[in-house]
Amino acid sequence: MSAELDSWFIREVLVHEQALERYLRRYRPHRDDVHDLRQDVYVRVYEAAGKGLPNAPKSFLFATARNLMTDRLRRSKVVSIFTMGDFDGQNVLVEDVSPERELSGRQALARLAEALDRLPDRCREAVWLRRVEDLPQKAVAQRMGVSEKTVEKHLAKGMRLMAAWYYGGDAGSGETRRAAGEDDDRSGQQTDRA
């Protein structure tokens, strides 16, 4: 549980989120399920890394994902023969999920701009004022004519959606599309889909 471990996690694990989501989705077509699975994979990887960093993080990540899915399948009552057969092999098909996404500065900026543009209007406005113009939340609230609490909620949503697109990319786009269909929540009410 250290800053070092956190930065290892960001550098070696989160960069593969897009590939990981695609991999999980292939076997678990339900979006909510994938979100939960992804979290569990991250938790397991983070826990294991706390005891010693794996020296091939990407394969470790995918091996963990595979084990987790195997465990779940064994526990579930109804098992599709096809799903089971598919990843019963010893090798995780890391190579076929996609090459690593290491972003150059320019690509990262392009991706972030895209993420920004996918935010709902008011949320986008709050993120712009806070992040680009660097205004404190209080000033953002004045500019937008809403309470600070509301700005905080817009930003919280922006943080979630930006992360989904930044790390998840196309895979995370479902997440942002859902949000775009949401209200512009002027009231600051967060739409929770728990």
Binding site: L109, A113, L116, V132, M162, A163
Partner: peptide
């Protein structure tokens, strides 16, 4: 950690301003 890292990365957006 995940959200914080993405938020930190979003500091690059300043270039758009």
């Amino acid at each position: 950690v995940r959200l914080e890292a993405a938020w930190a990365a979003s500091g690059r957006l300043k270039a758009l301003g």
